[in-house]
Amino acid sequence: MIVASKLTKTYGEFVAVDGIDFEVKRGESFGILGPNGAGKSTTMKMIAATSQRTSGELVILGKDPDKKGPEIRAHLGVVPQQDLVDRELKVWENLYVYGRYFGLKRGFILKKIEELLDFAQLQEKRNSKTDELSGGMKRRLTIARGLINEPEILLLDEPTTGLDPQARHILWDRLFRLKEVGVTLVITTHYMDEAEQLCDRLVVMDKGKIMAEGSPAELIKKYSSKEVLEVRFGSANNEQVAKDLAGIGERLEILPDRILVYSANGEKELEKIVKKGLKPVTSLVRRSSLEDVFLRLTGRSLVE
């Protein structure tokens, strides 16, 4: 569905996207994970065929977006980072006018709107102005809008940023349902849990480059251990204690507020630490996540 090779975008001197390669297959849910400023949104705009690449190759639905932009866009669904809804129009009207932009017939759109309002759980708000919607509802409206042409690829730029946990879970549930229909999803996010939940495969991006690629499980297996032991000795002591922890676990990551011990068995490592006579203020054993993968690849956390 999407093939990018050496895809590059520069703004003057600044290289936003630096020669990246990736491929997205039909029906796949593909994630672009990275911190703010990694080049995710710029990549997304090029895939959305609204921003021209500086160099490299990009093929979307078999076409070149720089030459066939409108044709490609007619078959895409886009959920932008900001909702970009028309505040003067009612909820159903926002869907209606958008449907018209694809040249869809009025009768079809009106039927489709009912399905979409059901799907987005917005039936009760159909006649509300968009200012009356919560953040989560607005997001669902934007997703519903992006689905009105039954897109071959749905692009979601930071779909749950700024939403509370409950609203995020509702949204994830809706996106799962779309996967079941076979819609190809491309999602950018800086939330590792979102990437783990939604993506079959993902690339980790930082400073315009792709650092790693694979399924969440593959990436964790490759770049991290099975478990992680998090120990805190108080912010002032972490650096000092870390020296005493040499040899414990497969690898250590010293963060300002805690020390991460990577190991196949976190409990065993904790026992070793206690045997050394060290007393962590708190300790926690958890499974490795994409956050650990990112930390390993870049030396930085995703959300800073």
């Binding site: 409108p70 007619a74 886009v78 900001q82 970009l84 809804v85 694809f102 042409n149």
Partner: peptide
Amino acid sequence: DKTFFATNSTG
């Protein structure tokens, strides 16, 4: 509202 950008993301 930046609605032009939403409009432009269609054909």
